[in-house]
C-alpha cells in the first residue's frame, strides 16, 4: 500500500527519474487526450474540404492549457491531435501536429499561468501559442514535407481562424467547466 498509491499528493511526483505520475493525472490526461482526438475526428470528418479546415480540436488544446496547466496543454493537445491525424489516416502529419499543437498548448499554458486570469494576458497567450502552431505547420510543410509555397500558404488563413475561434472557445470552456463542474479544481 505504501508504494501502491504513488500519487496521494496529486499532480507530478516530486521524485525525479522513475517516479510515476499519480493515477489521477494519468486518468485525467488519458481522458483529455482521448477527447481531443475524438473532437478533432468528429468535427473534421463531416465538413473538411482540405486538411487544416476549421475543427474544434484547437478549442480543446487551449481549454486543457487554461483549465489544467501547460503540461496538460502540451501533452493532451499534442498527443490527442497527433492521434487524430493517425486515426484519420494522415499519420505522416502526426509528428508535425505533435510539435505544432503541443507547443501551442505548452506556450499558451505557460504565458497564461503568469496572468492570474487577466484577460489581456490570456489574449497574448492565445496569440503566441497560436503563432507557434501556425508557424510549425507552415515551416514543416514548406521545408520538411517540401509541399511547395502554394500548399503551405493555403493552410495559413484557416489555421489563423482556428486559433481565434479555438482560443475564444477554449477560454469560455475553462470558465464554464469551473462553474458547471466545480468539484474539479485547477490542477
Amino acid at each position: 500500500m505504501a508504494s501502491g498509491s504513488s500519487g496521494e499528493q496529486g499532480g507530478k511526483e516530486p521524485t525525479g527519474g522513475a517516479g510515476f505520475v499519480s493515477p489521477k493525472t494519468v486518468a485525467l490526461y488519458g481522458v483529455l487526450t482521448a477527447l481531443t482526438a475524438a473532437i478533432t475526428f468528429v468535427t473534421f470528418v463531416p465538413f473538411a474540404p482540405t486538411k487544416g479546415y476549421f475543427n474544434m480540436g484547437d478549442s480543446m488544446v487551449f481549454f486543457s492549457a487554461f483549465a489544467f496547466g501547460w503540461r496538460a496543454g502540451a501533452i493532451c493537445g499534442g498527443v490527442g491531435s497527433a492521434a487524430a491525424d493517425v486515426l484519420l489516416g494522415s499519420g505522416y502529419f502526426a509528428p508535425y501536429t505533435l510539435v505544432a499543437k503541443g507547443s501551442e498548448g505548452l506556450v499558451a499554458g505557460l504565458i497564461d499561468r503568469s496572468g492570474n486570469g487577466k484577460r489581456w494576458i490570456r489574449i497574448i497567450a492565445i496569440s503566441v501559442g497560436g503563432a507557434c502552431m501556425v508557424a510549425t505547420y507552415f515551416l514543416s510543410e514548406l521545408y520538411l514535407l517540401d509541399v511547395g509555397w502554394g500548399a503551405a500558404i493555403a493552410e495559413v488563413p484557416g489555421n489563423i481562424i482556428q486559433v481565434i475561434v479555438g482560443g475564444t472557445v477554449g477560454s469560455l470552456l475553462a470558465w464554464y467547466v469551473r462553474k458547471a463542474y466545480p468539484t474539479r479544481s485547477r490542477a
Binding site: 490526461y29 488519458g30 487526450t33 482521448a34 473532437i39 468528429v42 498527443v79 490527442g80 492521434a83
Partner: peptide, 17 residues
C-alpha cells in the same frame, strides 16, 4: 498507460460527441 487510456476512450467519446 495514458496513451492506452486515450486510445481506449477515443471511440466512446466519438459516439458521445
Amino acid at each position: 498507460l495514458t496513451l492506452a487510456i486515450a486510445l481506449r476512450f477515443f471511440p466512446a467519446f466519438g459516439s458521445v460527441m
